[in-house]
């Protein structure tokens, strides 16, 4: 008898005997086959050693507990549905934040490009001399890198959070129906140590670069315009340029 013949026969017999959690039983025998085959036994040998599936199936007694816990399971599933509604809303918020962060990152990149090539689409970029513009462009590029890294990490965080929630969901149902539960998952993404180090380095460098260039740009602008409030001089934010 091959592995499939044995398992099919066993499943049929279990069904005939009204065994409720037949899937769990079958998976035990599947594992038995997997282990034995890894040890180099043939499917026929393993099936022969396991015994007659008809006889084995008759040794399983139908579960009385499962019928008893039926009511409990319904309550658990109802409770889970309510939790799901709140968790769903929460995940929508997380996704929204991810989208906002991504949009912010893209804006930074576009602004940096505009500053460095000296174009100002729809006059959105305030006028300034080229030197502070290139310094600000550098600062915005660093901010773009920083927010992009943030986006990537946050996406990993959402993914892990969803997996963790999924595991909780599955385990709660499994526990209510008397099946074995899997260990729960942490909510923080477990990235390889190397990736973690890289993310930290890139974030640190871009943060420092952003701050330095931003402050430098401000100082340069003040010097070039000859005024602390250089935005008055250059007519930003609707101020009339002081000529």
């Amino acid at each position: 008898m091959t592995r499939n013949e044995f398992l099919t026969k066993l499943a049929d017999e279990l069904k005939k005997n009204n065994i409720t959690d037949a899937d769990e039983i079958i998976s035990e025998y599947e594992q038995h086959f997997a282990f034995k085959m890894a040890d180099g036994f043939s499917e026929e040998e393993i099936a022969a050693r396991l015994g007659n599936p008809v006889e084995l199936a008759s040794q399983f007694e139908s579960h009385v507990e499962n019928i008893k816990s039926g009511g409990k399971k319904v309550t658990t599933v109802l409770g889970l549905v309510f939790i799901d509604i709140f968790a769903g809303a929460f995940f929508v918020l997380l996704f929204a934040w991810e989208i906002i962060m991504a949009a912010f990152a893209v804006c930074n990149a576009v602004a940096a490009v505009c500053l460095s090539i000296g174009s100002s689409p729809w006059s959105l970029i305030p006028p300034m001399p080229y030197v502070p513009a290139i310094v600000f462009a550098l600062s915005l590029t660093a901010l773009f890198v920083l927010t992009t890294v943030g986006c990537i990490y946050f996406a990993a965080f959402i993914r892990q959070l969803m997996r963790s929630y999924g595991r909780f969901h599955k385990n709660t149902i499994a526990a209510a129906s008397g099946n074995a539960v899997l260990p729960s998952l942490g909510i923080y993404p477990r990235l390889p140590a190397k990736t973690n180090r890289r993310i930290r380095t890139v974030a640190m460098i871009s943060l420092i670069l952003f701050t330095t260039c931003f402050v430098l740009g401000m100082i340069l602008s003040m010097i070039l315009s000859g005024s602390l409030e250089f935005w008055h001089e250059w007519g930003w934010f609707g101020y009339n340029a002081v000529k």
Binding site: I25, E28, Y29, H32, I46, R49, L50, G51, N52, P53, L56, Q59, F60, E61
Partner: peptide, 10 residues
């Protein structure tokens, strides 16, 4: 028979 242990565990 190897298979006997599983009904027993259950």
């Amino acid at each position: 028979a190897d298979g006997t242990v599983y009904p027993l565990l259950r």
